[in-house]
Design a protein around this nucleic acid. Structure first.
Length: 877
RNA sequence: GGGUGCUUAGCUCAGUUGGUUAGAGCGCCUCGCUUACACCGAGGAGGUCGCAGGUUCGACCCCUGCAGCACCCACCA
C-alpha cells in the first residue's frame, strides 16, 4: 500500500542511488545496438547550477531516457568547463577577500593550486546537482576541460591548424580588458549605448598658429597618441590643409594631415584624429598611411611614459586632466552631448580598451566554409529552424578569432620560443633544443587559450580523440547538441568548425536550441536583480519531477521561457494526481497476476484507443523536440481522460466489482504504460510507482530500461472514440443543464433523450444507461424515439440528440429562455453562412470533397437544431 | 545602420501544407469535503487572432504597408 502522499525529498536520492547501484546509465562501446549520444554542455566550475542548467539537464535527460528505453545504446557524457576568465576571476576575488592578496602575490604556480582546489569543490557541487536533477549521465565518463586527454586534443588541434597555416601569430589591435588583463575575442565584448560627450578641439597648423582645424572626438585623452589628422580628400573645407602638418594639442608634436575617404565629411567636423594605438578604425587608417603607432596605456589602462606629464593617470582621470588643460589653453571649442556604443568586457563589465599587441589567431573564415555547407546541406539540422539564418549570417561574416589570453588558468599555448634566435616551435611537447640555432634555452608562450577553444573540441575530446578510441568509433558523430541559443556562436559554431576540421565528420546531426530562462516578468535572472529562482531550492521543496515537468511543459519553440514557482507548484499537483490515481488502482487491482483485457467492453476499448493515440503523439512530438507538446499530451491523457473519465466510469460499484472479480487488467496496464510514457519527464515518481505495478515487466529491474511505449495501431478505434465521445458529451450536457438551472447535485432529476437522426444513436446509448445516470446524477433516464413531448422542456439540443427534462424538475426558466434565444440567433446565422457557401459555385468547384461534405453535414445539423429551438421557444410561450 | 523573431482569452503560450464551431494550462466566477486525490470534483464567463489594405469561393495562416515589443550583429570618430 502506498503512503497517502509522495514526498519527493524522501525518495529521490534513494531512487537515484538505486539506479547507480544497478549501473543503468553506462554506455558500452562494444554493444551492437544503435547508438544515441549527447554531450552535456559542460557547466563552468565557477559555482552552482542555475535554472538554465536545470533546463538543459531536463531536456537532454528526456531525450536520453526515451532513447535508452527504445533500446538504443545511449551515452550522455557529463563534464565541467574550466572557464578561463570566469573562474580565474572568481578565485582572484575570493583570494582578495580572504587573504587580501592578488594572484601576483602568490605567483603562477601557487595561484593555480588555489584554482584547482576551487575547481574540485565546485565540480563536486555541480555533479551532485546534476544527480539531483535526475540526470542519467554515464558517470564513468565524467570529463573536465583540463583533463589530460582533453589537453592532448587541444594541443593536437592547435598543432594541426598551425601546420596548415590556419593558426597564426600577429600584431594587431585587439580588445583588451584592463580589469582581467587579457585580450578578448570580438564575441566577448558587448557593446552598450552609453551617454557621452563630443568634444571639439583645435589642432593648430604647424608654423601658423593662427590657423587651425577642429577635430571632434569622444575620447580626448587619446589625442596624446594621435599620429595624424584625416580629412576626406574631396572635402573642400580642408583643402588648404592638404600636405600640411598640424600640432597635437598639449604635447606639441607635429602630425600630418592625411587624406582618406574613410572619413565621413558630414559627421562631426569632418576632420578625424587618428590614434592607431587606441582605435580599431584608426589602426586601419594608420596602416594605410604608414603612420606610427603610439600605445599610451599599460595593461591596467593607466597612461605610460608615452603620455608625458599625464603618465600614471588612468583613462578617466587623464580625460579630465586633458580637458582641463585644453580649456586652459583655449583649445576646446565646444562640448556636446553624444551617446555612443562602448565596448564592455562580457565577464566583468569593464570598458575595454583597444590595444595593439601580439596575439594568436584562428583563420575562422576558412574553417567556416565547411561548417556553413554542413548546415546548408542539412547534414546538421538546427531546431528551431529560424536559427539557421542567424547562424549563416554570423558564419558568413566571421572574422579572425583571437585565441590567446593573458591568463594563468587554462590550456597553455603549445608554443616555445628560442631564447636566442626567437624561432617559433609548435608541438605537443617542449622541444629539447631550437631547430634553427640548436640553442637549448626555449621558453613556452606565457599565454593560455580561449576557453572556447577547448570547449570547441568537447564532442571529440571527451570521446578520446586524437586517439582512435573505441568510444570515438562508437559514439561519434554524436546525435544531438542541446543548449541555449546564447552560445550558438561561442560554442556550437566552433564545435562544428573544429570538429569537422579535425575528424572530417560533423560533430552532431541536430542542434536543438532551447529558450532562455527568465523570471515571471520576463526579466533576465541575475544575482544583482535578486530574481534568481534556484532550481535546487525549488526541487527540494516541490520535487524534481514537478520542476522537470514544468520545464518541459514550458520548453516552447520561442525565445524566452518564464519560470515561476507557481507554475512548478501546479506541476506538483499533477504528480500528486498520478500518485493518487495509482493508489486507487493498486487499492483494487494489486492482486492482478496476468494480462486479461476485455476489449468487448467499450470503455476498455476507448481508453486503449486513446492511450495509443497519445503514444503516437508523444513519440512524434519528441522526435521533433516539441517537449511542450509531448508533456501536454501526457498530462491531458492521464488527468482528463484516464482519471476524469476512465476511472470515473469504472468506479461505479457494480462495474468495479465486476472488474475486480474477473481480474480484468485494463486499469493496471494502461496506467503502467502511461507511467513508462511519462518516465523520461518524471523519472522519480514513475520509478517508485512502477515498482508497485502488479503487471510490470518483471525481467527489468527498473522502469529506466523497460520498453518505451510504441503505438499499437490495432488498439486504435476511431469508432469507439467517437461513440464514447458522444456519451461524454451527453453527460457534460446534463451537468451543464443542471448548472444552468442551478440545481444542486443533491437534487436528482429525470430526463428523456430523443434522437434527431433515428434510433441508431439512441441504441448505442442504452449500454451506458447506468453510467450516464450515475455520472449525470439522474434519478431516471429514458430514451424515446418519438417527436417532441409536450409536457417537458427541451433543455439541451446537441448535434444529434435532444434532452428533455420534465417541467416539474425545473425551477426558474427566464435565464434558460434568454440563453436559448441567443443560441437561436447564433445558430440561424451559422446556418445562413453554410447555405450561402453551398450556393457558391466557386466554392463547390474548388473546395475539397471533405470540406464540402462537412459543410453539407453542418447545414443539415444546424437546420435541425434551429427548428428544434424554434419549436422549443414556441412551446414555452 | 543591418539582421532575426514576436504581437491569438486576464497571464504564459499552442494552432502542423489556407477549409466545418480558433485550443491548452494557469487565473477568475458559481456550486460541491461524492470512501484515489480539496495538491480534488462539476459547471461557467472570457477572443472583431496588433492595425490597414490585398490575393482567394474561403485567411490566425499567404502578400504589401504601418505600429509596438524583444533579441542579435556592426568601427562611424
Amino acid at each position: 500500500m502506498l503512503e497517502s502522499q509522495f514526498v519527493p525529498k524522501d525518495s529521490e536520492s534513494s531512487i537515484y542511488e538505486f539506479w547507480l547501484k544497478h549501473d543503468l546509465f553506462k554506455a558500452d562501446p562494444e554493444s551492437k545496438a544503435p547508438t544515441y549520444t549527447i554531450v552535456f554542455p559542460p557547466p563552468n566550475v565557477t559555482g552552482v547550477l542555475h535554472m538554465g542548467h536545470a533546463l538543459t539537464c531536463t531536456l537532454e535527460d528526456i531525450l536520453i531516457r526515451r532513447k535508452r528505453m527504445q533500446g538504443f545504446n545511449t551515452l550522455w557524457v557529463p563534464g565541467t568547463d574550466h572557464a578561463g576568465i570566469a573562474t580565474q576571476m572568481v578565485v582572484e576575488r575570493n583570494l582578495m577577500k580572504e587573504e587580501k592578496k592578488s594572484r601576483h602575490d602568490l605567483g603562477r604556480e601557487k595561484f593555480l593550486e588555489k584554482v584547482w582546489e576551487w575547481k574540485e569543490k565546485s565540480q563536486e557541487t555541480i555533479i551532485s546537482q546534476m544527480r539531483k536533477m535526475g540526470g542519467s549521465f554515464d558517470w564513468s565518463r565524467l570529463a573536465f576541460t583540463l583533463d589530460e586527454n582533453v589537453s592532448l586534443a587541444v594541443k593536437e588541434c592547435f598543432l594541426r591548424l598551425y601546420n596548415e597555416g590556419l593558426i597564426f601569430r600577429d600584431t594587431a589591435i585587439i580588445q583588451w580588458c584592463p580589469r582581467c588583463h587579457t585580450a578578448l575575442s570580438d564575441l566577448e565584448v558587448k557593446f552598450k549605448e552609453v551617454p557621452g560627450k563630443f568634444w571639439h578641439i583645435k589642432y593648430r597648423l604647424k608654423g601658423e598658429p593662427s590657423q587651425f582645424l577642429v577635430v571632434a572626438t569622444t575620447r580626448p585623452e587619446t589625442l596624446l597618441g594621435d599620429t595624424a589628422v584625416a580629412v576626406h580628400p574631396d572635402d573642400e573645407r580642408y583643402s588648404s590643409f592638404h600636405g600640411k602638418e598640424v600640432m597635437v594639442p598639449l604635447v606639441g608634436r607635429a602630425i600630418p594631415v592625411v587624406l582618406d575617404s574613410y572619413v565621413d565629411p558630414k559627421f562631426g567636423t569632418g576632420a578625424l584624429k587618428i590614434t592607431p594605438g587606441h582605435d580599431p578604425n584608426d589602426y586601419i587608417v594608420g596602416k594605410r598611411h604608414h603612420l606610427p603607432i603610439i600605445s599610451l596605456m599599460d595593461e591596467n589602462a593607466i597612461l605610460n611614459q608615452e603620455a608625458g606629464s599625464y603618465r600614471g593617470l588612468d583613462r578617466v582621470k587623464a580625460r579630465q586632466k586633458v580637458l582641463e588643460d585644453l580649456q586652459n589653453q583655449q583649445l576646446l571649442v565646444k562640448e556636446e552631448d553624444h551617446s555612443h556604443n562602448v565596448g564592455h568586457c562580457d565577464r566583468c563589465g569593464t570598458v575595454v580598451e583597444p590595444k595593439v599587441s601580439k596575439q594568436w589567431f584562428v583563420k575562422a573564415e576558412e574553417l567556416a566554409q565547411d561548417a556553413i555547407r554542413a548546415v546548408e546541406k542539412k547534414e546538421i539540422r538546427i531546431v528551431p529552424e529560424e536559427w539557421e539564418k542567424t547562424y549563416f549570417e554570423w558564419m558568413r561574416n566571421i572574422r579572425p578569432w583571437c585565441i590567446s589570453r593573458q591568463l594563468w588558468w587554462g590550456h597553455r599555448i603549445p608554443v616555445w620560443y628560442c631564447a636566442k634566435c626567437e624561432a617559433v616551435h609548435v608541438g605537443l611537447e617542449a622541444p629539447k633544443e631550437c631547430s634553427k640555432c640548436h640553442h637549448s634555452s626555449l621558453k613556452q608562450d606565457e599565454d593560455v587559450l580561449d576557453t572556447w577553444f577547448s570547449s570547441g573540441l568537447w564532442p571529440i575530446s571527451t570521446l578520446g580523440w586524437p586517439h582512435e578510441s573505441k568510444d570515438l568509433n562508437a559514439f561519434y558523430p554524436t546525435s544531438v547538441l542541446e543548449t541555449g541559443f546564447d552560445i550558438l556562436f561561442f560554442w556550437v559554431a566552433r564545435m562544428i568548425m573544429l570538429g569537422m576540421k579535425m575528424t572530417g565528420k560533423i560533430p552532431f546531426h541536430t542542434v536543438y536550441l532551447h529558450p532562455m530562462v527568465r523570471d515571471e516578468q520576463g526579466q533576465k535572472m541575475s544575482k544583482t536583480k535578486g530574481n534568481v529562482v534556484d532550481p535546487l531550492e525549488i526541487s527540494d521543496r516541490l520535487g524534481t519531477d514537478a520542476l522537470r515537468f514544468f520545464l518541459s511543459w514550458n520548453a516552447f519553440h520561442g525565445r524566452d521561457m518564464r519560470v515561476s514557482e507557481e507554475g512548478v507548484e501546479n506541476c506538483k499537483f499533477f504528480v500528486n494526481k498520478i500518485w493518487n490515481a495509482s493508489r486507487f488502482v493498486l487499492m483494487h487491482f494489486s492482486d492482478v497476476k496476468e494480462s486479461k483485457i476485455d476489449l468487448s467492453n467499450e470503455i476498455n476499448r476507448w481508453i486503449w484507443s486513446r492511450l495509443n493515440h497519445i503514444k503516437e503523439e508523444v513519440n512524434r512530438s519528441l522526435d521533433q523536440y516539441r517537449f511542450f507538446e509531448a508533456a501536454q499530451a501526457i498530462y491531458h491523457f492521464i488527468w482528463s481522460e484516464y482519471c476524469d473519465w476512465f476511472i470515473e466510469f469504472i468506479k461505479s460499484k457494480e462495474e468495479l466489482e465486476l472488474r475486480k472479480s474477473s481480474k480484468e487488467s485494463t486499469a493496471v496496464q494502461v496506467l503502467e504504460e502511461a507511467l513508462r510514457l511519462l518516465h523520461p519527464f518524471m523519472p522519480f515518481v514513475t520509478e517508485k510507482l512502477w515498482q508497485e505495478m502488479p503487471l510490470r515487466d518483471q525481467t527489468k529491474v527498473s522502469i529506466c530500461i523497460t520498453q518505451y511505449p510504441e503505438t499499437d495501431k490495432s488498439k486504435i478505434s476511431q469508432e469507439t472514440e467517437d461513440k464514447l465521445g458522444r456519451v461524454i458529451r451527453l453527460i457534460e450536457q446534463i451537468r451543464t443543464t443542471r448548472g444552468v438551472h442551478q440545481l444542486s447535485p443533491a437534487v436528482e432529476i429525470t430526463i428523456s433523450v430523443t434522437s434527431l437522426v433515428g434510433e441508431g444513436l439512441l441504441k448505442e446509448l442504452i449500454p451506458f444507461k447506468e453510467l450516464i445516470k450515475k455520472l449525470g446524477k439522474l434519478k431516471e433516464i429514458e430514451f424515446i424515439q418519438t417527436e417532441f413531448p409536450k409536457e417537458t422542456h427541451l433543455s439541451v439540443i446537441m448535434r444529434d440528440l435532444k434532452l428533455f427534462i420534465p417541467k416539474t424538475d425545473l425551477g426558474d426558466l427566464t435565464q434558460e429562455l434568454a440563453r436559448k434565444k441567443k443560441e437561436l440567433v447564433e445558430k440561424t446565422e451559422a446556418l445562413r453562412r453554410a447555405e450561402e457557401k453551398l450556393r457558391n459555385e466557386r466554392f463547390m468547384n474548388s473546395a475539397p470533397q471533405a470540406v464540402r461534405d462537412g459543410v453539407v453535414k453542418q447545414k443539415t445539423e444546424l437546420k435541425r437544431e434551429v427548428e428544434a429551438l424554434q419549436q422549443y421557444l414556441e412551446d414555452l410561450s
